[in-house]
Design a protein around this nucleic acid. Sequence first.
DNA 1: GTCTATATCATGATAGAC
DNA 2: GTCTATCATGATATAGAC
Lengths: 196, 196
Amino acid sequence: MARTPANVQPGQIRERIIAAALQLFTRRGYFSTSVPDMARAAQVSVGSIYHYFQDKEDVARELFQSLMKGLQEALAKIAQDKDTAHDRCRAAMAMLFELTETNRDAMDFMLYAKHRDFLPSERPVCSSKPFETMRGFVQEGMESGEIRRMDVMVATSCLFGGAIRMITARLDGVLAEPLPDSMDAVWECAWRGIAA
Amino acid sequence: MARTPANVQPGQIRERIIAAALQLFTRRGYFSTSVPDMARAAQVSVGSIYHYFQDKEDVARELFQSLMKGLQEALAKIAQDKDTAHDRCRAAMAMLFELTETNRDAMDFMLYAKHRDFLPSERPVCSSKPFETMRGFVQEGMESGEIRRMDVMVATSCLFGGAIRMITARLDGVLAEPLPDSMDAVWECAWRGIAA
DNA sequence: GTCTATATCATGATAGAC
DNA sequence: GTCTATCATGATATAGAC
């Protein structure tokens, strides 16, 4: 009866646990999700979870780090493909909007979850690598003269703050239309605010 | 030894519980705070908490609603004192910045806490009364010609999104200087973005 | 109205079979 | 490596004294 099926690659179980955890953490929240819940959703046993991970917090940490890594890679690709600060920032915003639509749970967990509560060792989102990269885009834009000279933190917050607000609204179910539909309008406001 | 002291007004205990809950919820998180923790911090007994509130969730709900009410009153006062959309929105942003400095925990709980997880009945923050009022400011600004015509949700998100990002950065300890120091710079970016 | 002490329950984590 | 069954802990909520 498919117990320990031989056709399942060992690594696959780990992925299944991670995927199930993402769903449950975003839908019910971290603390309302028990380890047996995760086991049921991933169709593995509790013992398997504790075999692959140290504890529940460890699952959340690995999930968070893998999502951040994906985001960072997308930003790195943008940095390669685009030349100006304008094009890089616009591509970054578009990427965030699209990711929200294609992988809602991932965006929810990265942006909305209060990691402080269950990942005390993790640094706050706004000092994470991806946010650092986005600040780098803005910094270079100031040096090239595309963006007005000002505090980089202020400029980055203003450039992406509106988009992030729209994303949370979308995640809360307050926005009916897909985010990319608003991309042009949001970008125009954002860029006008900081452009030289 | 000061058990059931006669000089303590009955209503005071309720306030003490609320105040202690705010501190603990923001510092340790809702789920990591037990009712005995709250009792200890408020210097009351567990029984008293259950006398004044139905359960732990009820404490969080009343706390949240009272904070939202305070914010709403501040916005109503701004609507009275100021005439133009420009002045109203600017005053609202300044008020949010100051509140973050004077009552950090309150702002943290309102803005940063993931209420979905423990207050399922409560509506998401961005469809709450205060945010509605702020959207009203923006709407009127469009009708008066101060603000470019566009989707009101987009305009409001862009106008206040940068400020909110700065507030969360400040709450995370990433910003060293008090927020009011950045008020002029943030406001200039925000208003430029949507001004007619 | 306020307290202390406790019943009840669910969770995270483990032990040991296969 | 994966499973099931179990343990120990700590939480919520209540009962009953004062």
